[in-house]
Design a protein around this nucleic acid. Sequence first.
RNA 1: GAGGUUGUAGCUCAGUUGGUUAGAGCGUCUGAUUGUGGUUCAGAAGGUCGUGGGUUCGAGACCCAUCAUCCUCCCCA
Length: 459
Amino acid sequence: MKPSIPQGTRDFSAAVLRKRNFILQTIRSVFETYGFEPLETPAMENTETLMGKYGEEGDKLIFKILNNGLNNPDKKEAVIQDFNAVLEGKTNKGITERALRYDLTIPFARYVAMNQGQLTFPFKRYQMQPVWRADRPQRGRYREFWQCDADVAGSAALLHEVELSLIYTNVFNKLKVPVEIHINNRKILGALAAVCGGEDMMMDITIAIDKLDKIGMEKVKDELIGKGLSMEQVDTVESFISIAGSNDEKLKALEDMFSSIPQGLEGINEMKTILGSFNAIKGITSAGTQLHVDLSLARGLNYYTGTIFEVKALGVQMGSIGGGGRYDDLTGLFGVKGIAGVGISFGVDRIYDVMEELTAFPESIQKGTTALFFNTGMEEQQHVLGVAENLRSKGISCEIYHEQAKFDKQFKYAERKNIPFVVIIGSKEIEAGTALVKELASGTQTEMKVDDLLQGLGY
RNA sequence: GAGGUUGUAGCUCAGUUGGUUAGAGCGUCUGAUUGUGGUUCAGAAGGUCGUGGGUUCGAGACCCAUCAUCCUCCCCA
């Protein structure tokens, strides 16, 4: 058979992995400086933990794992019955009890609900793991991809929104990726829905206006009419998303629009508080990124109830590279009421694609092995093994060429692996107690005492 | 789930209206060079043309199916 890997998955070579790790380490270090603690959860969850949390479309994209033992003759009748349910589009524990995690937020909520007695609130955790979606792969879209989430559970304080915004600005500042952070509030969108056909229309309205920059105003209006809004209501939506100007001007216009709707005013006040606090502090790290009030920002996930975030890279055609928001009652889905939360997510794979396109990765992260010892024979190899072992104990990565070969070949190996130094210790050098060190980039070669190797390799 | 693109050597790709033994560049290997790479020169290996059918005297090329791929929509990171 021809070797292959599943659609939408990738192998990561050394060069790719170093770049990915650079992104992951940058994010992790920022998370840690804000006091978030690591958490990892299993690749699979119980199917019922995930189902129904991501909307109808989301349910279809969850990878379900087939149960074992379905061919047990004793259970044949039950399995056939269960499978018929699957054919009708229902998921069924008898067929698929487990599923691959779809994101990190729901597993986090499940974890908080399970461990609420042991946790110290507010509970601040970060999580960096792969997630899986049965999506059709395309540019910036994979079936296995990594997310990095930071969430706070058990606090309604807007301080967290401010700090999470600062995390976004600091991470992308360190990665040298220019971004725009869009911010909106579900309460404001709720107020809009209340004015235009009722609260239960909020999802339809938000999904439609979320497409504004992609399909344009007319198509958005068509979609709204299709959802059953009256012309008058559609006009209200249009005037809402047409609000332009600075953040302050937008908020002022919103206040006028929703002056009689408490929910809307609450959302507006939250935005004002967050923006005021963020703007007063962001100069300290001189991360110049701004928060942009974006009234067409909606986000599809239906558990958000307050602030919502989305991060877009500037100068690259790519969907959002980060997103998040506040949810009042996430653990309520698991029977634990009253734990509010807020969190953000980084899309590692898209950040990688963006950085690749912007050639934003620093050269320095591609260093692997520091020195390659040439192999000039079995006896010399044994001697060199000791020298190498000595250097390794001091934290210097080095390799010995695996067999005696023409220098030509050994040089090429060093070159291809991007190894900066070649060290030659042959019979002559062993006798003299020296080593020949050649720096490949410059071609300069120096003979030195074996004891001086450390300095010779630039340490 | 809907629509489209592409599939030829390890990689990137040529291959004329269907016509003899399917090519190039890069890479790999060997030698010029028995302890000094990147340059140069000479040579070699490497292909069931994604897979399976069909049309034809003859198919890499045309038709059908299938698989893979990338892209767009839906939705999302």
